[in-house]
Amino acid sequence: MSSAHLPPHMRPERSFQGLILALQTFWAEKGCVILQPYDMEVGAGTSHPGTMLRSLGPRPWNAAYVQPSRRPKDGRYGENPNRLQHYYQFQVILKPNPPNLQELYLGSLEAIGLDPKLHDIRFVEDDWENPTLGAWGLGWECWCDGMEVSQFTYFQQVAGIECAPVSGELTYGLERLACYLQNVESIMELNFNGREGAEKVTYREVFLQAEQEYSRYNFEHADTAALFRRFAEAETECRALLGKGESGERHLMVQPAYDQCLKAGHAFNLLDARGVISVTERQSYILRVRELAKACGAAWLKTEAGGAAA
């Protein structure tokens, strides 16, 4: 499938939004549910309950979505061409992974204009691990001409629980991919809407101010005492909700509890960016979030979507 039939402003190699739409169309045609971003601050598409919780339990699940990802520490006041504290990931999760997942993935690259006869596409070892989610898997960084364009993982464990069956997860770093496709050196130069002249909207117009403002907030002004409190409150509430949701063999309130786990995670990321968490404390905070994630994962298996018997 090629993008040649699309009007120029919709083509993934000319338009940031065109790239997103092309990936959505591709994966929708492969049978995925197209979700919308989760409405909370998360560090990666994996944290979306559509991956984190849905990858647990026996039920088949195929979904794709864009997830805005917040990495407070990666902020550079909009001055670094490749680093942002807020960026987009395109996430695909297929449970169980189909046997031809690599071919499907390569098809998606063709769909966005990367011809594998012209570009050097490689699967380079990368054992993926997300310690705050208690998750790990084996897979690769996918390289296109030396640039990492995606992460490809077969989940082995999520929330400390063995995946049965295993899901295949694909994560596309959209800004970096778009820079490559549009042949620009800086994310801020990206053509967002694919139009030219007066109609053209760049990534800079959409996001530069936000990057500057959030970098100030993340590094200089976030109220650390409040964040420490927020962390503790979220942790407490997560545990409380997990307790209150217990109902015999079933659990009735996993997702609200998981939201609190995400809140704790984001508070931790901000504290980390503020540089007020030492290396050793860091480990213990990560462990605390992981314990919440594990408890949520275990509770999820007691829900209908988690595959618990009716």
């Binding site: 046997p99 054992d127 897979g139 082995q156 995946c163 295993v166």
Partner: peptide, 23 residues
């Protein structure tokens, strides 16, 4: 050194393990 399970067969914990899916 590290091996994995994959695909529909991985519902069972005794499914074949290989370094990456064996084709």
């Amino acid at each position: 050194p590290k091996s994995m399970r994959w695909g529909a067969a991985s519902v069972s914990s005794s499914s074949l393990r290989w370094v990456r899916p064996l084709q």
